[in-house]
Every structure is written in C-alpha cells, then in structure tokens.
Simulated scan of single mutants.
Amino acid sequence: MSTYVSKEIRAELDAARITTLKRSSRLRVEVGDNSFKILTLWKDGFTVEAETTPRLRGLVDIFDGANHMYQCLIIADEEAVGEMRYEFKRNTVAADKAPLDFYRPPDAPIALLGYED
C-alpha cells in the first residue's frame, strides 16, 4: 500500500484545513485599519493565512470578537503549508482602564456622593 499523495490533492487538503480554521476562529489581528483572521494562537505567537495576508511587522492588536486581548510587537518566523507564522517579541495584555499608581484598599468607596444643603 502506498502513502503517496499527489501535489494537487495535498494542496486541496491544505486549503480545506485552512478554511476550517478560518471558520472556527473568532480571533483577528489588526494592523492600522486592516484586519486579518488568526488561524491559531499560542503563548509565543500565532499563524495567519499566507495567501491572503500581507507580511506583517511591528506593533499589532489582537482581538477576540470585540474584546481587545493583546497589543503585541511581532516578527515573521516562517511560512509553511499555507500559513505564515509570527512570534511575539513583546506581548502585553490590554486593559480597559489605566493602571493605578497607588494602593486602593478593597473596601474603599467607588465614588463620593455630594449632598445639597
């Protein structure tokens, strides 16, 4: 029994695999005004479709749906099987509020309400 697969069939299988990954992923990377689907994301990087995504470089934002997850500095790693792999040089978790520069006690009031005389 032979395990040889022709180039055409291998290309079709790779295209089907990438299409499945694109459908199942909610993640996207944004560079300026452009947005591209992330196929896989792991601790040290992510992959995007090589054919439809230009070479990315520098500071990017990663979103899960509408939630801003990370702001990252990336470098291109390698292209393989229709996917372009990028690695993080810096990966910072995005926050919805500015960090405090002082200690806030857990039982501190949220706001002070004034009263009229």
Rank of each mutant, 00 (worst) to 15 (best):
M1Y: 12
M1T: 13
T3G: 14
Y4Q: 09
Y4T: 13
V5W: 03
E8H: 10
I9F: 12
E12K: 15
L13C: 10
D14T: 12
L21C: 11
L21I: 02
R23W: 13
S25I: 05
S25M: 04
R26E: 11
R28S: 06
R28F: 05
V29S: 00
V29W: 00
E30D: 08
G32R: 00
D33S: 13
D33K: 15
N34G: 06
N34M: 05
S35P: 01
F36E: 01
L39S: 01
L39N: 03
L41Q: 04
K43E: 13
D44P: 00
D44A: 02
G45F: 02
G45D: 06
F46N: 01
T47K: 00
V48H: 07
E51D: 11
E51M: 07
T53F: 03
P54V: 03
L56C: 02
L56T: 00
G58L: 04
G58A: 01
G58D: 07
D61F: 07
I62Y: 03
F63D: 00
F63G: 00
D64L: 04
D64A: 03
G65N: 09
G65W: 05
A66D: 06
H68D: 02
H68A: 03
M69H: 04
Y70C: 02
Q71I: 12
C72V: 03
I75H: 07
A76T: 10
A76K: 14
A76S: 11
A76H: 15
D77E: 12
E78Q: 14
V81E: 10
V81I: 14
G82T: 02
E83D: 03
E83I: 06
E83A: 15
M84W: 11
M84P: 03
M84A: 14
R85G: 03
R85C: 14
F88M: 02
F88V: 01
F88Y: 03
K89I: 15
R90M: 05
R90D: 10
N91E: 05
N91I: 14
N91C: 15
N91M: 08
N91Q: 06
T92A: 13
T92L: 08
T92N: 05
V93E: 15
A94K: 06
A94N: 08
D96C: 08
D96N: 15
D96E: 08
K97D: 12
A98M: 05
P99Y: 07
L100K: 10
Y103A: 06
R104S: 15
R104A: 15
P106V: 11
P106G: 08
D107I: 02
P109I: 07
P109M: 04
A111T: 13
A111D: 07
Y115Q: 10
Y115I: 06
E116S: 08
D117V: 06
